[in-house]
C-alpha cells in the first residue's frame, strides 16, 4: 500500500502554508516524517524565537494522532525536557478530522497560553505558579539562548 492520499494532500497543502508561523517539510525519504518549525506567538515569552520540532504520522494516522516533539529546548510547563508535549488533542482528544496543520497551530497556541495546572514538566509548572513573571523571564531567556531567531529564518528564505 502506498502512502495514503490524505498524507500526500496534507503535505501539498502545508507547502502552501503562509503567514501562520508554522512550517513542515518532509524529512529525508520518509514521507511520514516531518521537520517542523513553529514561530513563538506574539506577546508570549517565546516571541521572536523559531522552535524546531519533529512530527511523525503513525501507520494508522489519521485514526491515531501524529507524534510530535520539540527538538529546541524550551521552558514551558506543558513541555518536558525531552520536548514531549502534553496536549489533549495529541492524546485522548484526538479526532481524525484534525490535521497536521491544526495540530501545529494548536501547539503554537499552547505556547501562547501555558497551562501550569496540567503540567508535564513539574518544576517549570511550580515556578510558573509561584512566580509567573520570573518563569516568563526564564522562558524568554531560553528562547534567546536556544531558539533560532525569526530574522535568521527570513534570511534563509
Amino acid at each position: 500500500m502506498s502512502l495514503p492520499k490524505r498524507i500526500l494532500k496534507e503535505t501539498e497543502r502545508l507547502r502552501n502554508e503562509k503567514d501562520t508561523g508554522i512550517k513542515a517539510t518532509i524529512h529525508g525519504d520518509n514521507l511520514r516524517y516531518f521537520d517542523v518549525e513553529i514561530n513563538g506567538p506574539e506577546g508570549s515569552p517565546y516571541e521572536g524565537g523559531v522552535f524546531e520540532l519533529e512530527l511523525f504520522l503513525p501507520e494508522d494516522y489519521p485514526m491515531s494522532p501524529p507524534k510530535v516533539r520539540f527538538l529546541t529546548k524550551i521552558y514551558h510547563p506543558n513541555i518536558d525536557r525531552l520536548g514531549r508535549i502534553c496536549l489533549d488533542i495529541l492524546k485522548n482528544n484526538w479526532s481524525p478530522a484534525l490535521q497536521i496543520r491544526t495540530v501545529l497551530l494548536s501547539i503554537q497556541a499552547l505556547l501562547g497560553a501555558p497551562n501550569p495546572d496540567d503540567p508535564l514538566a513539574n518544576d517549570v509548572a511550580q515556578k510558573w505558579k509561584e512566580d509567573e513573571n520570573a518563569a516568563k523571564a526564564t522562558a524568554r531567556q531560553w528562547t534567546k539562548e536556544y531558539a533560532k531567531k525569526v530574522s535568521d529564518q527570513k534570511e534563509e528564505a
Binding site: 502534553c86 489533549d88 491544526t102 497551530l105 494548536s106 497556541a109 501555558p114 497551562n115
Partner: peptide, 15 residues
C-alpha cells in the same frame, strides 16, 4: 492530561 488551550483558534478545517 487535557489541555484545551486554543481550541477555537486552531480548528479551522475541514468545513
Amino acid at each position: 492530561m487535557g489541555n484545551s488551550v486554543g481550541r477555537e483558534r486552531s480548528y479551522s478545517n475541514p468545513g
